[in-house]
Amino acid sequence: MSTQYQASVLHAAKDLRLEPREISAPSSDELQIRIASTGLCGSDLHYYNHHRNGDILVREPLCLGHESAGIVTEVGSSVSGFQPGDKVALEVGLPCEQCDRCKQGRYNICKDMKFRSSGKSFPHFQGTLQERVNHPAKWCYKLPEDVSLDVGALLEPLGVALHAFRRSQMPSGGAVIVFGAGAVGLLCAAVAMVKGASKVVIADIDAGRVDFAVKNGFAHSSYTVPMKRGKDIDQSLAIAKETATAVTEIGGVGEVDVVFECTGVPSCVQAGIYATRPGGRLMLVGMGNPIMTLPLSAAALREVDIVGVFRYANTYQESIEIVQQGMKSGPDFSKLVTHRFVGLDQAPKAFEMAGKTKDADGKLVLKVVIDSNDDASNSAKL
């Protein structure tokens, strides 16, 4: 027996359509979940605006959305530990669990990963901008009573930040610079704060975002990066050195142990190399230009490790602990959700808002979330 529900489906660039779909009862190892909060991220915006994400093309109608939490409505026959009414966060990447990477616990780089809302695998694994989904219980995480559904949706991008932190090998009491004060940059800064960094400086071209970071306890200090571009590579590298010097002088922090580069912009990656101390690490978190000119000798001669970061693995339980710690002593992760739209018919407006830095009232836009329907009892207050 199947039930009809609504889904927001992308057919072409900026062509979202509300369509009926059918869902059957969950399989024995699955939960059926009413999606109550889905955050929009950069990859969603790329698909929405361009019908592609870099080299990955959308080849069939696709539901976007992968930062999600919801409420269990049905439980598969062999599932234990869950019951209808439970609040859960969804980990939406399903690895093969058989390859060497999976066996090493690095399933985030499994070649056969199926990831909701991505066009990489075909048929596409449909995203969470649907009223309901069936999802393996193994990849669902029960939320404590004091963690809202919107914060539950943030556990996905928080996982990226936590994974980046783990790979950074930040020493105890280390100093950190974060380039980029979007949602992921703010989360990287927050994780460093929670993990005991002695100094966290966040840098961005948007003064409003870096001010938000400091005022809300996501970083100790901030730097607003001037809008300067070089005419050639030599001039560009000179500007990057200037930026690195200016950022490292904030609060007398000096060269830092770890730089989290969350923009993907070549000038910030260049500045990140110059700002990292000998033996430190530059973490490439942002997905940006695929081809860059970098001062590699400046990294090699000082043994600065340049480390890639892709999604996350085994992060959800610790991420829940981090947001609970933030509720007691800061930062308050719920403040990252700045705009909320109720109903899948509001998805086009939500995507347009997510593409802005400020709304019509001048309010900062950080994380936009969509509730799949207008059932007020399942709103963010839960």
Rank of each mutant, 00 (worst) to 15 (best):
A12M: 08
K14Y: 00
K14E: 14
S24V: 10
D29V: 05
L31D: 03
I33H: 03
I35W: 04
I35Y: 03
A36E: 08
T38Y: 03
G39C: 07
Y47Q: 10
N53L: 12
V58H: 06
L62W: 02
L64P: 01
G76Q: 09
S77A: 14
C110I: 03
K111W: 04
S118L: 04
Q126M: 12
L129G: 00
Q130V: 15
V133C: 07
W139N: 14
K142A: 15
L143S: 09
P144N: 15
E156S: 06
E156L: 04
S168N: 10
M170P: 01
S172K: 08
V176C: 09
V178M: 02
V178Q: 02
F179M: 14
G180Q: 10
G182K: 05
G185R: 07
A192F: 01
M193Q: 11
G196E: 08
V200I: 13
V210E: 04
T224I: 09
T224M: 11
T224P: 07
K231D: 13
G251C: 13
G252T: 06
F260R: 07
T263F: 04
A275I: 08
A275E: 11
A275P: 03
I291H: 15
T293K: 15
S297P: 00
S297F: 12
A298S: 15
A300E: 06
L301M: 11
I306Y: 02
R311E: 08
N314K: 14
I320Y: 10
G326F: 02
S329V: 13
T338G: 10
K358Q: 14
D361K: 14
V368I: 10
S377V: 14
A380D: 14
